[in-house]
């Protein structure tokens, strides 16, 4: 008798819960069946009227029905909860394509980027990064580098002279001498920096540009050793195959002297203003340090020798980023600078 009442109650409760279309009607159903004064509670109160031998069985059945209704209710409630959350989240729609407010980081000059990269590369190989003055003594810029006043090689470097008989350094090579004076041998240094030549400015000439000097002094340093560093340097810079050629080059401070050219990365060879129509770009003059330069730096060429190179950083930056006009670099034009 009570079993059939419970079974009928369970069916009704299920129908009510399933029929509840809103959280409110679901709550009404809950109160009706599960509330303190609900249907199940009133049956529970009547339990005492049952003969004791039936109470356990009916109690168990009552619990089972209660749990069944509760879990049906919970499931239904969860559906409403999820729908409510879904609709709230849907209302929080965001136009994700709107620009984000706030200041963007600025960018560093491409010459800074390349200097930092090369400084890290050479530091990892045991080279110190040293600086020298931009206004140099004539002695450091020329004489100590085996370029006496009467040497025609002075013509090759159109020099800015300033008061006091000093020059705006025409290359970073005087730092070789300063480093030898400061550190002695053995020595591994690079010296990136600003240099000056008295030249009219056009798409491929600047009166102000950047070089990176390098020097290694040790015992029995060979051309093969020099090539090892030059090759590693180019690989580090370009991270790709570049065609190079090494040919004789004359610089009074090295003997023998070389020019290391790379195939022009702007035009790929047929010729353009950057490579002066030659297809090759002189990038890396280098050589074994001339004994007179070692002497000028206070190092005995009988015991020590080494190599030196002067990398054209400005050229390199132009090759790396395919910049076809050198004037952009000192233009201060943010439309250019922000690209890096």
């Amino acid at each position: 008798m009570i079993e059939s009442t419970l079974s009928e109650l369970e069916s009704r409760a299920a129908a009510s819960i399933d029929a509840a279309a809103t959280p409110d009607s679901l709550e009404t159903a809950r109160v009706e069946f599960l509330g303190r004064k609900g249907a199940l509670a009133s049956i529970g109160k009547d339990m005492g009227k049952l003969p004791p031998d039936q109470r356990a069985a009916v109690g168990k059945l009552l619990n089972a029905v209660k749990q069944s209704i509760e879990s049906r209710f919970d499931a239904r409630k969860a559906i409403f909860g999820k729908a409510a959350l879904d609709s709230r989240l849907a209302a929080e729609w965001l136009d994700v394509t709107r620009p984000a407010p706030g200041v963007r980081p600025g960018s560093l000059h491409p010459l800074t980027l390349i200097q930092r990269e090369l400084e890290e590369y050479f530091t990892s190989l045991g080279f110190a990064v040293v600086d020298g003055p931009e206004v140099e003594t004539e002695w450091h810029n020329f004489d100590a580098l085996n370029i006496p006043a009467t040497h025609p090689a002075r013509d090759a470097q159109d020099t800015f002279w300033v008061e006091g008989g000093h020059v705006l350094r025409t290359h970073t090579s005087p730092v070789q001498v300063r480093a030898m004076e400061k550190f002695g041998a053995p020595l591994r240094i690079i010296a990136p920096g600003r240099v000056f030549r008295n030249e009219e400015v056009d798409a491929s000439h600047e009166h102000t540009f950047y070089q990176l000097e390098g020097m290694m002094i040790d015992r029995d340093v060979s051309i093969a050793h020099m090539l090892y560093f030059m090759k590693g340097l180019l690989e580090a810079i370009f991270s790709r195959e570049v065609t190079v050629r090494l040919r004789p080059g004359f610089f009074p401070f090295v003997e023998p002297g070389f020019e290391l050219d790379i195939k022009c990365l702007i035009c790929g060879g047929p010729g353009c203003p950057v490579c002066k129509q030659s297809g090759w770009v002189e990038l890396l003059p280098c050589g074994l340090v001339h004994p007179n330069v070692l002497r000028a730096g206070g190092i005995d060429p009988g015991h020590w020798n080494g190599f030196a190179f002067g990398l054209g950083l400005t050229r390199l930056v132009m090759m790396r980023y395919a910049i076809d006009d050198i004037r952009h670099l000192a233009s201060g034009d943010l439309r250019f600078l922000r690209q890096f």
Partner: peptide, 19 residues
């Protein structure tokens, strides 16, 4: 010069002076 193979020097390396 292209006939000279690049070769790493076998020289001790010291921690460079820090700028």
């Amino acid at each position: 010069y292209s006939s000279i193979p690049p070769e790493p020097p076998l020289k001790p390396v010291e921690r460079p002076w820090v700028n």
